[in-house]
């Protein structure tokens, strides 16, 4: 995927959440409030909310296994050029690059279908770009939507 992102982009708003499944709802509510205030198109909001949830589900489920440091998860809404919305998700868990996750095979039957693996597939579909960096002891995942006007 393209990575035309600007890691140094100014931060417009931030939210810190707990590393729990229930705290994912705090993040989606936060995005919902921003979407309403800024009148984001419905399809863009749906895709971004879904992508952020999929990313956070991975983080809260796997990032802090065996990590001694207190878990930290922060979301930054980024000021981007153009007509796109960017969200950076930062956590201090174990290194994990979702952009390296292989596409799951298309199952032919319920019996063959594997449980899981569809989150990154959905993120790739709904986002224009998904980029990962490991900076110090932090994972930085930057999600950029498609333009608002298309």
């Amino acid at each position: 995927m393209s990575t035309s992102l600007t890691p140094q982009a100014p931060i417009r708003a931030s939210l810190t959440i707990d590393a729990t499944v229930d705290a994912i709802a705090d993040a989606t509510e936060w995005l919902g409030t921003l979407a309403e205030a800024e009148d984001w198109p419905m399809a863009l909001k749906f895709g971004l909310e879904l992508s952020v949830e999929e990313a956070l589900a991975n983080v809260v489920s796997y990032a802090f296994e065996g990590v001694d440091a207190a878990p930290m998860i922060r979301l930054d809404l980024l000021e981007l050029d153009g007509d796109r919305i960017g969200v950076r998700i930062v956590d201090n868990g174990i290194p994990f690059d979702p952009t390296n996750v292989a596409e799951p095979e298309v199952p032919e039957s319920v019996e063959d279908a594997k449980i899981g693996g569809h989150g990154v597939q959905l993120m790739r579909h709904f986002l224009e770009s998904l980029a990962y960096q490991r900076l110090g002891n932090e994972n930085h995942l930057i999600l950029v939507t498609k333009p608002k006007t298309t």
């Binding site: 909310e49 879904l50 949830e53 999929e54 589900a57 279908a113 449980i115 899981g116 989150g119």
Partner: peptide, 12 residues
């Protein structure tokens, strides 16, 4: 709204 977690529940 449905995410992959909801899909997973249906698959189970």
């Amino acid at each position: 709204y449905v995410s992959s977690s909801g899909l997973r529940a249906l698959l189970v």
